[in-house]
Amino acid sequence: MKNGLAGKHIAEQASPLLDPGMSNQKKRKRRRWIEPRGSISLQLYLALSVISFVLMLAGWSALTYTGVIDPLFLPSPSRIIQSGFKLFTEFHFIGDILATVLRVFEGFILALILGVILGLLIGTFKVVEAFFEPMISFIRYMPVSAFIPLFILWIGVGDSEKVLVIFFGSIFSIILMVAVEVGTVRSELLEASFTLGSTPFGVLRSVILPASMPGIMEIARLVLGWAWTYIVVAELVASSSGIGHVIIESQRMLRTSNIIFGILTIGILGLITDLVLKLIIRKMFPWSYGR
């Protein structure tokens, strides 16, 4: 890298004399992609993304269609599409997807509402922080999956247990991250609003909350990604519906292609929610992103 930068310097200084125009530009263009944070064209970006998927698919096909790997361990792509089709047509897979999505959103939205409120209060008021923060940091390191047996003992194996797993798995991280986000609000903004006659709660409502909103939405996006992993853990244990339930049933019946189709479904659901949230965030906060 050091050489690269020095080289660029020399090229820029020498070019007007030696060779104005073209070659200098070319050199700069060629180097752009190894510059830290350098940007690349959209076409190149998309091409690279597509190539990575194509490569994965090619490797997979090579291993499966040639029979190198037993289909019991890894079925071919077409087998998986077939069984996916069958899942939807014969086994009402859409019902399982809806059950899973509903649980994730119920647990996550509850956690988000409560977590944001507590996070804002902890980040704003030192007394609230002293009361909650140490306890939350402690609980956060307990793995939510280990709580599943306890939850089942408390409230049984129904939907609410799954929702509770999501809620429990998400809320502590949300609280702590929101509290940190609140701490990054510039003190000039708080001070300016005090000199403009704001009350302490007024500052919380009309400065701290809007200032940390984009950050909070990004936190929501991140934690929602984790929630998809918790839901499967919850559904693997004592469940009668949901994608996780389909996966564990398929394992019992040695339907490897169903397992993989289930996994892919979760991946795609996660990807879609992430993209939608990302778009919403960009649209909601034009003042924070771009010009």
Partner: peptide, 11 residues
Amino acid sequence: MVFQAYSLFPW
């Protein structure tokens, strides 16, 4: 009060 810089509410 008017501060040196960056005291406007960006939203």
